[in-house]
Nucleic acid binder design. Sequence first.
DNA 1: AACTCGGGGAC
DNA 2: GTCCCAGAGTT
Length: 347
Amino acid sequence: MKFYNKLIYWYLKNKRTLPWRETQNPYFIWLSEIMLQQTRVAQGLSYYLKFTTTFPTVFDLAKADESTVLKMWQGLGYYSRARNLHYSAKYIVNELNGVFPSTYKEIIKLKGVGDYTASAIASICFNEPTAVVDGNVYRVLSRYFGIYTAINSTEGIKEFKTLAQSLIDKKQPGTYNQAIMDFGATQCKPQNPLCESCPFNDSCVAFEKNLVKELPVKEKKIKVRKRYFNYLVIKTEDQKTILSERKGKGIWQGLYQFPLIESDKSINQKEIVNSEKFIDLFPNETTISLYNKKEIIHKLSHQHLYTSFWIVETKSLKKATISWNKIKQFPVPVLVANFLEEFQPKN
DNA sequence: AACTCGGGGAC
DNA sequence: GTCCCAGAGTT
């Protein structure tokens, strides 16, 4: 029996019921695929429902402000996905008359769409036999065929794409692609895969040679940068504060935060008050107090942010233009959202 | 080729 | 703590 027949047989019996499996609307499939990049189904699901409800068509998404899109994306991470999604929605509306491109070659031109996403959309929506290679596919193929090539090397990326392409069922590429991903997610899992009940355990190289735990091979690990964030949470007597948008490179582009004093180590209240930024911001009298006694360690994949929130009260401040009761309309990082939730449970 | 971009869940 | 998730863009 061919590889794809066995796989699709498994899929038809074991597939998860998911909302984006009920449609071939390329706009919906696109939304789901962008959201699920480096994101578990369980985490992306509610965002998918929220987006498809609020923006039922690409025209609705294109019409929205970027800030609105980011607010809806808040908490999902990798915010460039939301910015690129919005950019591409406007492109589809303005340049393509709202018609979603229908071939891999055209789909991959969209910003935020790479080989994986273009293959997924082309196969699921337009029946084009382009094989997806995501983390699940790397794992399934490296184990089944006993391949040691690092999945994040240039060579590995090429090798696995070619292999995946040779295995696809050209008559039902969309079903095949979803099958191999679902199989990787629920059966051939990273840890404790269900080999004893696996339909491939009579022909899987890794199972036969007891290499399941060694595969797939991945090169090098990331190193984590430590940063020290001191947020100045301003409260004026007329209930205003300052939020500013993060611009340029780095994390959280387009999201908002309180005025930030960053340092390369922990700093105390005296150092805050004597800093250039603080003096520039508050020429007049203020009261400052540390909100969290212990630094909050916010962990990103490449950075650990040691964070202190400083409550700064002052009579009035010209730059403080944002009312506290409107603060939750702004897209903010989870680090800031968590603080606001505790500091201002209302709204 | 290496780095950067979030947040969370499973172990 | 470690790994990694329906990856892509930039340097």
